[in-house]
């Protein structure tokens, strides 16, 4: 394979890896599992790169391959009670692909919404998502139990979600159709 093809692959891959990872985490839920599937998907993308049709949308192609890995993974883990049924999985995949532009807008809005969070909440979010310490250790640092930390995280995510909703609605009203929030 010519070197310029490798460059093209890397360019597209690096540009879209967060979308591919996001797709996987949307349907797999567990971060460690999503990580494994993402790495397998990355390898498959590279192996099958010569088959890639440049006229095709790279993300759709990559998501198709990731989808196969997710299905294989689900077959192996079907008894753990966390996996979604096939039909729901397909619905979510389709929704993600259909709403890709909207999701991109929301990712941009997330950056500004993060800056609006109180410092302590941002710090807590970072400590939890950075993954250096287990949730239990992070909870201990805040004097909380893991259960309460999970709930607190949920509230912070809800605030972010609502902030993004408002932000995207103000920029592109036609694209946002909020369902409503908790509480």
């Amino acid at each position: 394979m010519p070197l310029q093809d490798h460059d093209k692959f890397l360019e597209l891959f690096l540009q879209n890896q967060n979308r591919i990872y996001g797709f996987i985490l949307t349907v797999v839920f567990n971060r460690d599992d999503a990580q494994d599937i993402f790495q397998q998907t990355s390898l498959t993308l590279w192996r099958r790169w010569p088959e890639y049709d440049p006229q095709r949308d790279f993300v759709r192609w990559a998501v198709g391959i990731a989808f196969n890995h997710v299905r294989n993974f689900r077959r192996r883990k079907r008894l753990d009670g966390q996996q979604l049924d096939d039909d729901v999985l397909e619905l979510l995949v389709q929704t993600r692909l259909d709403e890709d532009d909207w999701l991109q807008l929301r990712r941009q809005a997330l950056t500004s919404c993060m800056k609006k969070l109180p410092a302590e909440q941002r710090q807590m979010l970072e400590r939890c998502y950075v993954g250096k310490d287990s949730i239990k250790v992070v909870a201990q640092r805040y004097g909380l139990t893991p259960n309460v930390l999970y709930k607190t995280l949920g509230r912070i995510r809800r605030v972010l979600h609502e902030c993004i909703e408002r932000s995207v609605a103000s920029e592109a009203p036609a694209m946002s159709r909020p369902v409503g929030g908790e509480g």
Binding site: L125, Y129, V130
Partner: peptide, 16 residues
Amino acid sequence: VAYMDMHATLAWELRA
């Protein structure tokens, strides 16, 4: 999907 994408973006961007 939007919520999980936000979760994934946080996980991606804030990774160690």
